[in-house]
């Protein structure tokens, strides 16, 4: 497989959120606003690319029996980097995302890619795979948070960390608060996956 098709894989055919259906907790929890979604997506992409590259570099040195703990240590190190960097440069976003930053460690997408891809493929391909999967995750998160933010607040792209009030679309009084509460996350994501299933089935 070429490097480009490894990259493209994560965006479409094997999109982690819409196709592989893994790593749902952060998707549901951090999709309150587009900036949160993108922030979480970038954090996860960084960890995914970093851990894929390191695991791929070390793939001939790690004994197969203890590979999972080794992967976990690599992933946890990158998560710690992200955690500290975000706390320093985007404190507002870091506070909103809360425990979901350290919880990137147990996000199944990252361990799954280390195990299924990076531990068996060369560095360049693993990098492309990590980037593709990370962007696919970010894309899904952005889509879901755009729907929830727009319907829940009547505004879109609000970014308090950068002093941007967002684009006002309709009056907040008409916005169903339910979209911002947990049920809104579950139901919107369920319908979104259903919609994507319908569209892809029709194409095939």
């Amino acid at each position: 497989m070429s490097v480009f098709s490894d990259f493209k894989n994560g965006l479409g055919n094997e999109n982690p959120t819409f196709r592989l259906l893994i790593g749902m907790c952060p998707v549901l929890a951090t999709s309150l606003a587009v900036t949160n979604g993108i922030g979480m997506g970038i954090a996860a992409t960084f960890v995914l690319v970093g851990s894929n590259v390191i695991v791929s570099l070390l793939r001939s040195f790690i004994p197969p029996k203890i590979r999972i703990p080794c992967f976990v240590v690599v992933i946890a190190s990158f998560v710690t980097i992200v955690d500290l960097v975000m706390a320093a440069f985007t404190p507002g976003l870091h506070k909103v995302l809360g425990i979901f930053i350290p919880l990137i460690v147990v996000n199944c997408i990252i361990l799954a890619r280390a195990e299924a891809f990076a531990s068996k493929n060369p560095v360049v391909n693993s990098l492309a795979d990590g980037l593709g999967m990370g962007l696919g995750f970010t894309l899904a998160l952005t889509l879901l948070s755009a729907i929830r933010e727009l319907l829940g607040t009547g505004t879109i792209l609000a970014a308090p960390d950068f002093g941007f009030p967002g684009i006002h679309i309709f009056n907040k009084d008409f916005a169903p608060v339910m979209m911002l509460l947990p049920p809104g996350a579950f139901i919107t994501l369920g319908l979104l996956i259903g919609l994507i299933n319908t569209l892809t089935r029709r194409k095939a």
């Binding site: 509460l181 947990p182 049920p183 579950f186 139901i187 369920g190 996956i193 259903g194 919609l195 299933n197």
Partner: peptide, 23 residues
């Protein structure tokens, strides 16, 4: 159940309705 919602999507929607109850 509609074909497109079978399995995972319907599970999420069910969880959403349960979540409303827990609210």
């Amino acid at each position: 159940i509609p074909e497109a919602l079978k399995g995972f999507p319907l599970a999420l929607i069910t969880a959403g309705l349960m979540s409303i109850a827990f609210l």
